[in-house]
Amino acid sequence: MADFSYIPQVLVSGLGIGCVYGLIGIGFCVIYNASGIVNFAQGAFVMLGGMLTQGLLQRYGLPLLPAALVAIAIVALLGVVLERVVVRPLWDRKATMFTMILATLAAQIVIERVTLLVGGDQPKTLPMFTDLPPIQVSGVAVSYQLLWIVGSSLLAVAALAAFFRLTRTGKAMRACAINREAAALQGIPVSRMLAAAFAISAALGAMAGILITPTQYTAFNVGVPFAISGFIAAIVGGFGRPFGAFLGGLMLGLVQSLAILGFGAGLKTVAALSVLLLFLFIRPSGLLGAAK
């Protein structure tokens, strides 16, 4: 095969999916920082983002943007509910960390099943945000959806950075991440920060789900693979470092795409994980170093 013009194309695709992994990875970090919990229901947020938007679009005839915003709001609310109903009671009873992690996994399964019952098992999708043929840049097709994904992700990351740096709540959340007891002693309502963390990461997950759905399909069971990729992204970035997670996501997306080229899709994840494992041997604390 003499024609390797598809390699830049592959990198572009990897970048797009990488942004999505990154957003999901950030979600993991935000909750982890506030509580020390790894929230395995993160995938459910991603799935619900796509499914709810599709439902609002189809059933209630809302235009795309309001439907997406409403979906993000609902999922964020659900994040808070999850925190109140599942995590908080365990937290208050001083349950061990792995009990809470397991509880989030259970919540993931419940949400998935409920979605199956309500939404059915058929795959659905969203229309492209801008339904135009892709832009051709010297033989590489750049679709408008890709621009939406990259643009929105960067915006979200920037907004998040501003939030953590400039607002009181953001600063308080960072304080919790550094040391929860000390933060509590300073009068920071740690449990409210926990709820806020769930809301933020649920919203990020939903946003990731909405951005990616126009390029693929969504169904009740798409959440878990995304959650796994997001989790890997978070680890690569240095668990607990939101921006590291974003970089980790980009890296994972690129490595996966190249792995499909080199080894085929069957070994995509194996190859990607091997590379990342090697990377972690060299730099055990992740791209940006461990949070704590």
């Binding site: 095969m1 024609d3 390797f4 013009s5 598809y6 194309q9 592959v10 695709s13 990897g14 797009g16 999916i17 999505v20 990616i212 390029t215 693929q216 069971n221 798409v222 878990v224 693979p225 995304f226 795409s257 499909i260 080229l261 085929g264 899709a265 069957g266 995509k268």
Partner: peptide, 21 residues
């Protein structure tokens, strides 16, 4: 001939490869 996994989020790598072939 390209393979994919049922839960793959993106098949554009495989499709690009086919197109360039």
């Amino acid at each position: 001939i390209e393979q994919y996994k049922q839960d793959d989020a993106d098949l554009s790598v495989q499709i690009s490869k086919m197109r360039s072939a």
